[in-house]
Write a protein that binds this DNA or RNA. Structure first.
Length: 132
DNA sequence: TTTTTGACGTCGC
DNA sequence: CGCGACGCCAAAA
């Protein structure tokens, strides 16, 4: 799929777009796209996504992108993204009606103490799966 | 505009 | 094995 080169300002020298219409940057879309390709019952990490995008050390940006994933469409299975330890670091950000842990369990991922059990086995590496 | 922050990761001690 | 510092870069204040 083609990469869209869109700058934040996009058009004229406008600096901000206060309305909710603000289009996410490529980085965000890229992250969303990768996450959406994570198979159910599998999980990946922020770092893995960052590495796939080319910047191994930009894991934090992936986290930021995920922060915006809630208003993204199609829906992004953010519950399948955990940190390197398999810890559900973003669980606190999920809507209370559908906790991260519950969604993971529904997909067949066992979670104990906010951690993915046998994380290495459930790990889905975009670098491998997408054939980088 | 500059400064702060953040759902992370790695390295040093 | 735990804790602190740094890196990385975009969005929000």
């Amino acid at each position: 799929m083609p990469r869209k080169k869109k700058t934040t300002s996009e058009g004229k020298g406008n600096q901000v777009m206060p309305l909710a219409n603000a289009a996410p940057s490529d980085f965000f879309e890229d992250v969303f796209d990768v996450v959406r390709q994570v198979p159910a019952g599998r999980v990946t990490t922020y770092g893995a996504i960052a590495a796939y995008l080319g910047s191994r050390r930009s894991a934090r940006m992936v986290g930021w992108a995920m922060n915006a994933s809630h208003h993204a469409f199609p829906a992004v299975p953010a519950q399948r993204v955990v940190n390197r330890q398999g810890l559900l670091s973003g669980k606190h950000h999920f809507p209370s009606d559908k906790p991260m842990e519950v969604q993971l369990r529904a997909e067949g991922v066992e979670v104990r103490e906010d951690q993915v059990v046998d994380f290495a086995r459930h790990f889905w590496d975009p670098t491998i799966a997408l054939g980088l």
